[in-house]
Amino acid sequence: MTEILEKEKGLLNIEKRMIEDNEPKNKLSAIDVSSYYGDFQALKNITMDIRTNHITALIGPSGCGKSTFLRIFNRMNDYIDGFRVEGKILYDNKNLYTGNLAVEQLRKDIGMVFQKPNPFPKTVFENVAFGLRIQGIKDKTFIEERVVSSLKQAVLWDEVKDNLHKSALSLSGGQQQRVCLARTMAVEPSVILMDEPTSALDPISTAKIEELLKELKKNYTIVIVTHNMQQAGRISDYTSFFYMGELIEYGKTHNIFTKPKEIRTENYITGRFG
């Protein structure tokens, strides 16, 4: 009798461990994705999953296709003449490149922060409230609460709480970038795409944003393009290395940085080219 109970306990433990070991589920997936600008092929047959509530870094030399890949997920490439994409892009297992997809809704779920801080020429408050206003939300207290909580999440509240109605353009670059981050978070997306978000910032602002990202991954899935290898190493859980439109290597950041399987990856992260 006790034997059986022991056995069952063991089985339960095994089951539990399996759940713990189980990789977190995928928020975004690219399956055999190629993309073109006119005749130029920017991405070549890329298959890659992006894990929920983790930070995934995309690294690689300029022109390797990492920004193109990032922008595929919120369809920001749609505005470029002659751009087309092949293969399947899934967001929560739904195909993103179908004719009847509401791009506006998609971009509320998958927010984006850009390389150069690009706040609107409005007040800090209106910047953060923008996403709610375009959804037609009129409830003043709701908007106010959301603006305050987003600014707090972006660790900007203490710096701007007395200047909420001053132009966002009067803030420093680092603060502007956090306004952009707050603006993105105000609509409660599930994914935040970041295209070299700290490349225009000084080291102190960069450190603040990095600190923030580690905090944010509890609630968001973050994909970040970066030129800064140390940054990828510091903040990301997974790293993918792109080169000439191909995905060379993808894995846990620790593995990529300590024992890369591909010689090209090793050369790049050790600074031998790129």
């Binding site: 920001m76 505005y79 971009r107 927010g111 850009f114 690009n118 706040p119 996403g131 375009i134 993105t184």
Partner: peptide, 9 residues
């Protein structure tokens, strides 16, 4: 870009 990225039409 910022505006479209926020889901604005």
């Amino acid at each position: 870009e910022a505006s479209f990225g926020m889901g604005a039409t």
